[in-house]
Computed example of a mutant assay.
Amino acid sequence: MSEFDVAVIGAGPAGLSAALGLVRSRRTVLLIDSNRPRNAATLRSHGFLTRDGVPPLELRKLGREEFEGYPGASFHAGLVQSVRALQGGGFELAARGIRGAANLEVTVGNIVVATGLVETMPSVPSLRAWYGTDLHSCVECDGYEKRDEALALIGESADLAERALLISQWSNDLIVFTNGADAVSAAEQEALGARGIAVERRPIADVVGEQGRMTGVLLADGETVPREAGFVRPAWTPAIGYLDGLGIALDAEGLIAVDACGRTSVPGVYAAGDSTAPGPEQLIIAAGHGAQVAAALNRDLLGPLLPV
């Protein structure tokens, strides 16, 4: 017998939404989280209906309070270290407690993975200093706040031109910085140029600013290109090292492969949110995915209506 019907790992919008849907379905739910989201540097989150502009940590706090208001809800402050499949079904989960919480070892019937992504930034020394204020990674989340500014797009990935096209919706003063990488083809550069978007291929020395505001991109040859703000394209990988022993299948993007309802290749393991599919990384989309996974998992737990 498992101690909980479901463990939800990660209390961002996807995990909170899944946990809320499951506990409202009268399932016993253990929610585990370290409260270290990758959007913690962002002062305001946007695009979440009725919560536009709320600080990300405040949104998480509100969601957790709602979840914990139900009888079947349990929360543990911790970092999941390992998940082991048990013979006959279910999983043994081990977590290291944080902020005074004890270490945890528990058996659960099912798991929802909602730990999101790990970001690896381009190798620019002071980039992190501007991240969350003048530089952002989610265009849909923060594009409106950077409207009509002189913007930079810094990245080294093959989708840089497509992201530049999207950013041009908010500003007609945009320069793409590839940091010396061959990330924009000649044809893409020509197409961007026809839309008034410049491509700067020289390596970057740093992002510079004065009095707490970004003022430009310093190139390796000493020239500073004036810029007021912008976007960065990190490399994203799912934060799922604790699942290494389960053999969960990944897709071509290196994300968790799931079906339309969030089921992974391992029975009893579901996934929701940014770790599962490329696309707009908006909080409201992650929350919707979490709700969808909760509904599917709850139905799966009921088993077939008729004998098989």
Rank of each mutant, 00 (worst) to 15 (best):
V83N: 03
V83R: 02
A85R: 05
A85K: 06
G88L: 05
G88N: 04
G89F: 04
G89A: 10
G89I: 00
G89H: 01
G90I: 06
G90F: 01
F91Q: 01
F91G: 01
F91C: 01
E92P: 07
E92M: 10
E92G: 14
A94N: 09
A94V: 14
R96D: 08
I98V: 10
R99T: 12
R99D: 14
A101M: 14
A102S: 12
A102W: 07
N103Q: 10
V106P: 07
V106F: 06
V108F: 08
N110G: 02
I111C: 02
V112F: 07
V113W: 07
A114L: 12
T115C: 04
T115K: 05
T115R: 05
L117V: 09
L117Y: 07
E119Q: 14
T120A: 10
M121K: 01
M121T: 08
P122R: 12
V124W: 04
V124H: 05
S126Y: 07
L127P: 06
L127T: 03
R128H: 09
R128V: 15
R128L: 10
R128Y: 11
R128S: 12
R128Q: 15
A129M: 14
W130V: 02
Y131S: 04
Y131Q: 05
T133E: 11
T133H: 13
D134V: 01
L135R: 03
